[in-house]
């Protein structure tokens, strides 16, 4: 007969689970439920009174063409940030993986930007590209290029995308590098002996074997672009010009923390929560199938 290890204690497993559950409830479920509840209220800023308005906050949002437009802005922003930061960091990781001399210096320098807070990253880029006082903006204008992100929505979007992507490159680089180093050298050498060139080796061996890392980073980067970028946008463009860089999460921040409209802000976070939940499901159902573990 097969021997099984069994635990007789009925309570202990729950006790052991308790800390984790408590943390999850207090820091994740409780705020989420609060947000759900808040989204049905219309409170005054000081919390002196609030009225239960059912779904008025949502109705107000969804009937606002400008709000719906920011979904599109968010999609452009998120896809661009994710694509740029991931492809660029993959390139850097592949390069760094091949460097032998001084590789740790390169690696360390590449990791630095991750330690920069989003708002500071925004200010750094602003110092270079702000048309009134930016250093590089000055040279761009001097060379005859009409650089004016203060009025040109496309240029403003490009600027925040680059800043947001730059900030995430280090993180992606770290994971890609670890992923690359985990690929057995023997596989690559075998392919080389069989006569496969550099490109072919990369696309047929390295890239597929890297896919779990890539998939993980895809999820992380999308979430980053969705939620963590309002600091950069706030310092660089404040959502302008017009509404060309007003992504969903920036509007949550601006309405809630600057405008004191907590009801609408909560409703927007609920919508954002739903969007991200749907995205995550899609990713796991359709993209993960193509991942080789």
């Amino acid at each position: 007969m097969e021997k099984r290890v069994t635990f007789d204690n009925k309570v202990l497993p729950y006790v052991l689970l308790l800390p984790q559950i408590a943390v999850t409830v207090v820091f994740f479920f409780w705020p989420a439920i609060q947000a759900l509840y808040q989204s049905l209220l219309l409170p005054d800023p000081f919390g002196l009174s609030s009225r239960f308005v059912w779904f008025d906050n949502f109705k107000h949002l969804l009937s606002d063409p400008y709000y719906l437009q920011s979904f599109q802005t968010t999609a452009v922003f998120t896809i661009a940030v994710t694509a740029i930061s991931m492809s660029f960091s993959l390139l850097l990781a592949v390069m760094a993986d091949q460097v032998i001399k001084g590789s740790s210096t390169y690696k360390m320098l590449l990791i630095w930007p991750y330690a920069v807070a989003p708002a500071i990253a925004g200010v750094l880029w602003l110092f270079m590209f702000q048309p009134s006082f930016g250093v590089l903006a000055y040279y761009m204008k001097a060379s005859g290029y009409n650089w004016n992100p203060v009025l040109d929505g496309g240029q403003a979007m490009t600027l925040v995308v680059i800043a947001a992507a730059w900030k995430q490159v280090s993180y992606n680089f770290l994971f890609f590098l670890a992923g690359l180093q985990a690929i057995p050298k023997s596989l690559i050498e075998a392919a080389a002996i069989d006569g496969a060139g550099k490109w072919r080796r990369f696309w047929t061996i390295v890239f597929p074997l890297l896919s779990p890392t890539t998939f993980f980073l895809l999820v992380v980067n999308l979430t980053y672009a969705f939620f963590d970028t309002f600091g950069i946008i706030h310092t660089m463009t404040s959502g302008g010009p017009g509404r060309s860089t007003t992504v969903l999460v920036y509007k949550v921040y601006a309405d809630g923390f600057v405008g004191q409209d907590l009801g609408s802000s909560a409703a927007q976070s609920v919508i954002l929560m739903i969007v991200v939940a749907v995205l995550t499901v899609i990713q796991f159902r359709f993209i993960e199938r193509r991942v080789h573990y």
Binding site: L151, G153, S238, G240, P241, G242, R243, V258, G259, D261
Partner: peptide, 21 residues
């Protein structure tokens, strides 16, 4: 009330004017 956000709206609309849109 909500004046901060109203100013943002005005900024957004004026920017569209300066852009010629």
């Amino acid at each position: 009330g909500n004046y901060d956000q109203i100013r943002t709206i005005i900024d957004e609309e004026l920017e569209a004017v300066w852009q010629g849109q």
